[in-house]
Design a protein around this nucleic acid. Structure first.
Lengths: 187, 187
DNA sequence: ACAGAATTCGAGGGCACCCTCGACTTAACC
DNA sequence: GGTTAAGTCGAGGGTGCCCTCGAATTCTGT
């Protein structure tokens, strides 16, 4: 049901783009909670116009993040292509959080009780699928603790979101401890 | 410089107590950000009265949390009394986060860039002192990874705060993974 | 009981954000 | 160029929270 209504008028299309660009910038810089008024201001467009194009914050989210979430698919597939189950899984974590650390908005999207934009929800499910497979593989290979589950990864993701917010450069360190554990190195 | 000014008038003292009780409840239930108006309402006192007694949110924090933070000292000392350096450290973590999980407000206090109440700050420093000693001991005994530092524990604490907020019952699981690492059990 | 000081009250001003709506402007098509 | 639907604008109303201040009340000591 893609209502392909009239094409947008030229000025309207232009404004739409300006809004999208402004929103993308501000989401990335400041997170998902930037006031819509700021977006309008940065786009040099009135608040009324903003609401005309994107009646809801989620409309912005739905318009902006699918593209970013493609990157998530990409790292999922990259990892699935890796024949070493442990390396695949560990690499996936690195890539995932690197992605999150780059974009405050994405960090919010992945941490939060999901935004309502359906495109985003399905992308997250796809991501969870990849991750689930990576976990299974690693468990079966006997290199990942047998009780590890996707729920653990969800918890980790939210925890990482917090770490990234607090200490944008400290997440690798935190992650490596999580992966290796606290015990003195015995390898 | 304890200005021991006039003792409070009877009704004033009563209101002060009601405010404190209300604030303690609401902080614990809803976290540090409850609207001050809610506190006033629950205390059955007007907003003006609230401001008379506690001009600042930090005045509440400073009045309420030192008591709770005593528990922090307690678990620190309990752990220091444990002769097994690993058991002491691991037990400290358990106790610490159990404490945090019980009280949303405390969770906020420990996670947040410190509230400004000086009493609270010093209690945190004391806590950090205990923790530092526990870490050193465990490292020297060769049971804790040699590069572990108080900064790592601070990061963990914020991460745990997030986990506790998201899944109040999931924190033990998350912590045990952090402690043991992801590798298949090889013990 | 009464004066006077201490305390209480809550309306109200400020701010930041949300969202709407009718008057105005402009692109698009003839 | 003129018509008109589409788009833009921004003042303004709503909400929730912060904080203040003068009038009204209530304790306390004599």
């Amino acid at each position: 049901m893609v209502t392909a209504s009239r094409p947008l008028r030229a000025d309207a299309a232009r404004n739409r783009e300006k809004l999208l660009a402004a929103a993308a910038e501000l989401f990335a810089e400041r997170g998902l909670d930037v006031p819509l008024e700021h977006i309008a201001r940065r786009a040099e467009v009135s608040i009324g116009t903003l609401y005309k194009h994107f009646p809801t914050r989620d409309d912005f989210v739905g318009a902006i993040f699918p593209e970013r979430l493609a990157a998530l698919d990409a790292i999922g597939e990259k990892a699935l292509a890796d024949p070493d189950p442990w390396h695949a899984f560990a690499g996936y974590l690195e890539d995932l959080y690197a992605l999150q650390a780059e974009d405050r908005g994405l960090n919010d999207v992945l941490a939060r009780d999901l935004p309502n934009a359906p495109e985003v929800v399905s992308a997250c499910h796809r991501g969870a699928g990849h991750a689930g497979t990576l976990i299974e593989r690693a468990v079966e290979a006997g290199v990942l603790r047998a009780d590890y589950s996707i729920a653990d990864l969800a918890a980790l993701t939210r925890a990482m979101a917090q770490v990234i917010r607090d200490v944008p450069d400290g997440w690798r360190r935190f992650l490596s401890i999580y992966v290796e554990g606290l015990g003195a190195r015995n390898s």
